[in-house]
Write a protein that binds this DNA or RNA. Structure first.
Length: 478
RNA sequence: UCCCGAAUAGCUCAGUUGGUUAGAGCAUCUGACUGUUAAUCAGAGGGUCACUGGUUCAAGUCCAGUUUCGGGAGCCA
């Protein structure tokens, strides 16, 4: 009967009145043959279990090692020590699972994030990753809460797709054909008619196009699921498998879209601030300690909590691409030739430019709109100037692009024209173009990379540290 | 994929101009102590110096290649 146990988070918030409880968890430390710091993952705070001297035989005492799992029953009393409010005076200690201390890789010391990345299971036992994954959960929960409150439908778009026209990136092929001897056409190419789906298929790079189909019937939908990119990207901001949130709304223009995105980001941050204060404070402290190693000019101006509060309390800066280019051209950095890449109208903003706008010029999140059509996707709505599209990117300090969205081109003729210009196979996309044939409406949507959001909120700097099992080039161990 | 850097004990790292038996802290093990807070004190064990090849009387140290990791860039979310 395990359900009668009390979680440590709950227990630590109660008043010590000698009440009997049962707890279960893993040993963090065992001090002085008397004091067991027990953790069950519900909070970073450990419960101090007190085993009075003599209550344990020698053999049991030796088996209480860092990492071992215990079931402890005892009485909750006010602690005589200074480090904690209450103790659990044990009346029985049962070892559920032994942990050989000589082999256990986790020690009572600080471990590097690189080392922990190799210990898929045990990194969950650390305070840092405990906090990160509790915050991650909280943000995910807030995503659903926000959209549910706004009457959006959670739409499940497919993981396997045949669409190869989105241009969002390199795709992972899905096939059941044999590698050594696949069926071939007369011209030597592989005959995908014999493949499982009778055509070439891939893992999805975005649920947007499917989302548009639903939104132009159900009004407001959002997706939240895994997305795959086979790009050979080796950076602290990219994963081969990541989670993306993609709302799509009928009867929305670009302005409505920006308002929703800003409100959404603030809502989920607020939710984490309200529900994960302890974890965020722990992560703030971790970040502050890490930044002590850095030279003065590389450190953040604000602590993690202050940064999040600042984002909540200030409107995102909204500028057009044209204004952004002008700001860059007039910046001291440009005049001193500090930029490595060219700045001119028509060229996409580089990381260094985005960083300058966000971190140096405005010092807050920035929404850039009205990008040149030539550097954006086919489905974005052409503005009246005939040169720019109704696109918007939200740039966040330290991370860069966190949201990419647009008002969609709802005019069939203009959309087809654009697709032809960009060599997108119009016939294959007929199912998509139906949305513009039968009662088309202005609509808009955006995509938000969930891990980038978790990075921003936790103050972590490597995206591999905010997903439980990172998938990156050359790494798929667990 | 490109640029830069790294790889030495379980972990974090030191190792000088190439030169005898490769070191420290933490962890582990043994013992002591017992209201501790990453407990403390004493002692012990622990190494294919990433891999392959080369230079040299002699390579952890120099050179080349490979692999992996880290940082940055591109692509993007």
């Amino acid at each position: 009967m395990f359900n009668k146990r009390v979680k440590i988070k709950e227990l630590l918030s109660t008043e010590p009145q000698g009440q009997e409880v049962t707890v279960m968890g893993w040993v963090r430390t065992f001090r002085n043959n008397q004091f067991i710091a027990l953790n069950d993952g519900s909070t970073n705070n450990n419960l101090q279990v007190v085993a009075t001297l003599g209550m344990l035989n020698d053999e049991t005492q030796k088996r209480i090692t860092t990492g071992a799992s215990l079931k402890v029953t005892g009485n909750v009393v006010a602690s005589l020590g200074k480090g904690q409010k209450l103790d659990l005076n044990a009346t029985s200690i049962e070892i559920l699972g032994d942990c050989d201390a000589a082999e256990y890789p986790m020690q009572q010391k600080k471990h590097s994030l690189e080392f922990l990345r190799e210990k898929a299971h045990l990194r969950f036992r650390t305070n840092t990753f405990g906090s990160i994954f509790r915050v991650r959960h909280s943000l995910a929960f807030a995503v659903h809460k926000f959209f549910n409150e706004k009457d959006f439908l959670y739409l499940h778009t497919p993981v396997i797709t045949a669409s190869d026209a989105e241009g969002a990136g390199e795709m992972f092929r899905v096939t059941t054909l044999p590698f050594d001897n696949p069926p071939r056409n007369e011209d030597g190419t592989i005959n995908f008619k014999e493949d499982f789906f009778g055509k070439s298929t891939n893992l999805t790079v975005s649920g947007q196009l499917e989302g548009e189909l639903a939104a132009t019937a159900l009004s407001d939908i959002y997706t939240f699921g895994p997305t795959f990119r086979a790009e050979n990207s080796n950076t602290t901001r990219h994963l081969a498998e990541f989670w993306m949130i993609e709302p799509e709304m009928a009867f929305y223009d670009i302005e409505d879209n920006m308002n929703l995105a800003e409100e959404f980001i603030k809502y989920i941050i607020r939710h984490a601030m309200d529900n994960n204060r302890e974890d965020l404070e722990f992560l703030a402290q971790r970040l502050a300690e890490e930044e002590k190693q850095l030279p003065q000019d590389k450190r953040s101006d604000l602590g993690l909590i202050e940064k999040l509060e600042f984002v909540l309390n200030n409107a995102f800066e909204r500028i057009t691409y044209t204004e952004a280019v002008n700001i860059l051209l007039e910046s001291p950095a440009y005049k001193k030739k500090k930029f490595q890449y060219e700045v001119s109208w028509g060229v996409d903003l580089q990381s260094e430019h985005e960083r300058y706008l966000v971190e140096k010029h405005f010092k807050k999140p920035v929404i850039v709109t009205g990008y040149p059509a030539a550097i954006k996707a086919f489905y974005m709505r052409m503005n009246d100037d005939g040169k720019t599209v109704a696109a918007m990117d939200i740039l966040a300090p330290g991370i860069g692009e966190i949201v990419g969205g647009s008002q969609r081109e709802e005019r069939l003729d203009k959309l087809v024209q654009r697709m032809e210009q960009m060599h997108i196979p119009v016939e294959e996309m007929s199912w998509y173009l139906d949305t513009r044939r039968y009662g088309t409406v202005p609509h808009a949507g955006f995509g938000l990379g969930f891990e980038r959001m978790v990075l921003f909120v936790t103050g972590m700097t490597n995206i591999r540290d905010v997903i439980p099992f990172a998938r990156t080039p050359k790494t798929c161990e667990f």
